[in-house]
Simulated scan of single mutants.
Amino acid sequence: MNTRIIMSASALVMAALGLIASFLPQEVLQYLGTDPTGMAPVLVQILGALYLGFAILNWMAKGVLIGGIYARPLAMGNMLHFFAGAMALLKGLQAGQQNSIIWALALVYGLMAVLFGLIAFRHPLAAKVAGQ
């Protein structure tokens, strides 16, 4: 499995979400149907900072050998983030938040959770040996 592509893709997704949340917090809250007053915009900006931090972590680690015991904390952190995010998005969809952006995010998060799960629990060289 080519972890460079997966790490790059996750970094780009998180960077996009981080930039949107950091620079357009009022617009994000309005789109979600929430009043953009008080501490809500600040919390969205902090969420954006979190996404940007995770994005740069993944971007800078895209060339590292990942899988099995190699860079396990990185793989597990990504897997947990994407799995928990996918479950939260699916719960929101089940509660009636039928929105095409939410559906798209749920699909991306679900796919990334599966990919990072495979990365975390497979030996990185097993794919090369099986492919020969």
Rank of each mutant, 00 (worst) to 15 (best):
M1Y: 07
T3Y: 03
R4Y: 04
I5Q: 14
I5K: 09
I6K: 00
I6L: 13
M7G: 08
S10L: 11
S10V: 04
V13F: 01
V13C: 05
V13S: 02
V13W: 03
M14L: 13
G18W: 01
L19S: 06
L19F: 07
A21P: 01
F23Y: 07
F23H: 10
F23S: 03
F23G: 02
L29M: 14
L29V: 11
Q30S: 14
Q30L: 13
Y31I: 11
Y31P: 02
Y31S: 11
L32I: 08
G33I: 03
D35P: 03
P36F: 00
A40S: 12
A40C: 06
P41I: 01
P41E: 08
V42N: 08
L43Y: 15
V44S: 05
I46P: 05
L47F: 14
A49W: 15
L50Q: 09
L52G: 15
L52E: 06
G53I: 07
G53L: 06
G53N: 05
F54P: 09
A55Y: 04
I56N: 02
I56G: 03
I56A: 07
A61R: 00
K62V: 09
G63W: 05
G63R: 10
V64I: 14
I66Q: 13
I66C: 10
I66E: 00
G68M: 12
G68C: 04
G68N: 12
I69M: 12
I69F: 04
A71F: 01
R72G: 09
P73F: 08
A75F: 04
A75D: 09
M76C: 12
M76A: 02
G77L: 05
M79C: 13
L80F: 11
L80G: 11
H81W: 13
H81T: 14
F82K: 04
A84D: 06
L90G: 06
G96R: 03
Q98H: 12
N99P: 06
S100M: 15
I101H: 03
I101E: 11
I101P: 05
W103Q: 14
A104K: 02
A104N: 00
L105D: 09
L107M: 08
L107A: 11
G110C: 07
L118G: 07
A120Q: 04
F121R: 11
R122D: 15
R122G: 02
H123P: 06
A127D: 14
A127Y: 05
K128Q: 10
V129P: 11
A130M: 09
G131M: 06
G131V: 02
Q132R: 15
